[in-house]
Design a protein around this nucleic acid. Structure first.
Lengths: 349, 349
DNA sequence: GAGCGCCATGTAAACGGTTTCATAGTTTCA
DNA sequence: TGAAACTATGAAACCGTTTACATGGCGCTC
């Protein structure tokens, strides 16, 4: 493995000059630079990343921490992160499946000295203290955090208002018995969607009832399982709002197996608008969330934090969502404009 | 940021001792070790990764290169990679969306000195030369490579035999006019599936006809679009094999919109068995591919390569696939055992 | 009780870069 | 024409570790 010294020797210059050439810094005679490039290419040389970060104390790498969830939505988020990071010449050190606070701390420890900042989609069990602790040594941006942390920018999904809009829409279609398949307890977005569902009902003058809420875990199977429980309810719900599309899809499958048709017998609405939602039979009414943009915004906030000298600028963003009416809710799908909801706030403090 | 020197000073020992404590190496007096731990924890010290890799020339990090594809299948592969890597105390440096050979070389250059090995799901345009070049400096494991490379272990999907089994199954159900929605040209698995489709037809004494093959790109939309083309064919195909599930789902959606029912009017079969496949209406007959295992095997091969002193051991694996009969093909779904196909070869040379 | 070996620890040299500062050579300008 | 300013380059310190080697103390053995 050729080092900077080999290149220097081959090019007949000092290592300082080679370094300058590779960093495009200050003035190096053009002819000299060409010799250096030639030597480097002959030796297949490229600066060693570890050595470089050791002296510069910058790694051009972003750490990404993910919870144990996966699937279409999360892979879109990662794609957004990766692409913007790549465009900005950053690499991406990913670590998934963190269930506990201890897990997270271990992972960030292992990343020490290898990353310039941490984008964190934390597990539900994370605490303010642990994030604060990490923040002391490293810029941190949070995605859908359960709380605000001093010095951390964050970007969240307008889950509450999206869910409220879903209920309002269903009520507008005449539904009164609206059930919900909730997401995993503890998950912020799951809870916000549940809260929005309850608020939506209350605003329509309908008393939210706990027996109409079935617990799920964001996966298809739990949506499928939820159907059995809901079909037992009397009066039977005429509409079901699932906290994400995967569960909605599982639910629709179970309803079909039970001989019920969507939306005639039961209306179904999901959340996220994953790629397949529009290809379901019937096409799934859902709340569109731009997962790709979510990932991108997180990286953008991180870059802002990194370029901010004293780390004083903290931005708390919410990405907007939009009700996407298709057929599964029984409404005539609006082919053009979708009902808009949610806010794209961008506060600085 | 506390360094090893700060800890040494606080604990009243030399930096060598601190290093030894953190590496569990050789004998350190238990009492001394405790003092070091105490000092480290008081200063919130953890060894700097960059410095460590500089001296040891090991980074405990695996590079992962992905093409521009995404979705359920790929995120499962990544999950498999990440989880096994994590369990084996490796970190994962991911870089996605590589379209060209140049892209790949740039990415691997940027990783230089930061990774111990590279797991590569290369773009279709990759060449033997470029992989060979990378291999000269770094262990490389390939996923679904278009060719074998000296010194590189690889793991592939039994796409050919899976596709052949699909056709055999459809022929067994009485279909003769079997169309295919192919994957992107150049993609190895897409091409193997196409080849398996043709072979399957030939083995059944049916002449493969090019007008029954529609080009897709592995995404739902292309499956949707393919329907229009296929429904024009006379005689109309009675069965369609899509090269992956996403396209099959898009296809089914379009067929439904055209007033055709699956499987009565047209039988549909996919490939991959992504999570939602079983929740489709009708449930999608497909070829099961264990994407998670695929990722895991790649990492396992990498670990083997890394622990192999002279890098002589090269393993070429194929992960087996299995036809998963559900309703979309019109057969009575086998609830228990699935028809088995494909080989799990494990040759060493 | 001198010699030997072992154990715990310290000293210092890498590892491969970046960067500050010094220096020699070349302009520029009065 | 000589001082000043600038340009291109080199020498050397430093980044935070690991590790080969040196060292000193102690318990054994003969």
């Amino acid at each position: 493995m050729a080092t900077i010294r080999d290149v220097a020797k081959t090019a007949g210059v000092s290592i300082a000059t080679v370094s300058r050439v590779f960093n495009g810094s200050s003035a190096v005679n053009e002819e000299t630079a060409l010799q250096v490039w030639a030597a480097a290419s002959a030796l297949d040389y490229w600066p060693n990343g570890a050595a470089r970060s050791l002296t510069t104390s910058r790694s051009s790498t972003l750490g990404v921490l993910l919870p144990d969830l996966f699937g279409d939505f999360f892979s879109e988020v990662i794609r957004g992160i990766d692409q913007l990071a790549k465009r900005e010449k950053y690499q991406t050190l990913i670590s998934g499946s963190h269930a506990s606070v201890e897990d997270v701390l271990t992972a960030t420890r292992a990343m020490r000295g290898r990353i310039d900042g941490l984008v964190m989609m934390a597990p539900d069990s994370i605490t303010v203290e642990s994030v604060t602790k990490i923040r002391r040594r490293l810029p941190v941006v949070l995605i859908s955090p359960p709380f605000a942390v001093d010095g951390c920018s964050s970007v969240s999904i307008a889950s509450f208002s999206g869910a409220r809009a879903v209920v309002a829409h269903l009520v507008g279609l005449g539904h009164r018995e609206i059930a919900m398949v909730a997401g995993p307890a503890g998950n912020v977005d799951a809870e916000e969607r549940l809260r929005g569902y309850r608020r939506g009902l209350a605003e329509a003058g309908i008393q939210p009832r706990d027996e109409l809420v079935v617990q799920g875990d964001f996966r298809e199977s739990s949506g499928y399982a939820a159907a059995a429980a809901l079909l037992d309810r009397r009066p039977r719900p005429t509409a079901v709002f699932a906290a994400n599309d995967c569960m909605a899809i599982g639910l629709m499958s179970a309803l079909g197996n039970a001989g019920l048709s969507v939306p005639q017998d039961v209306a179904v609405v999901g959340f996220d608008n994953i790629a397949i939602a529009q290809y379901m039979r019937p096409p799934l009414t859902t709340v569109h969330v731009d997962a790709y943009a979510l990932g991108q915004k997180a990286v953008r906030l991180m870059l802002d934090t990194l370029s901010d000298p004293d780390g004083a600028k903290v931005t708390v963003q919410t990405i907007d969502v939009a009700l996407k009416v298709r057929s599964s809710c029984g409404a005539r799908p609006s082919t053009t404009a979708d009902a808009y909801t949610g806010a794209d706030t961008d506060q600085q403090r």
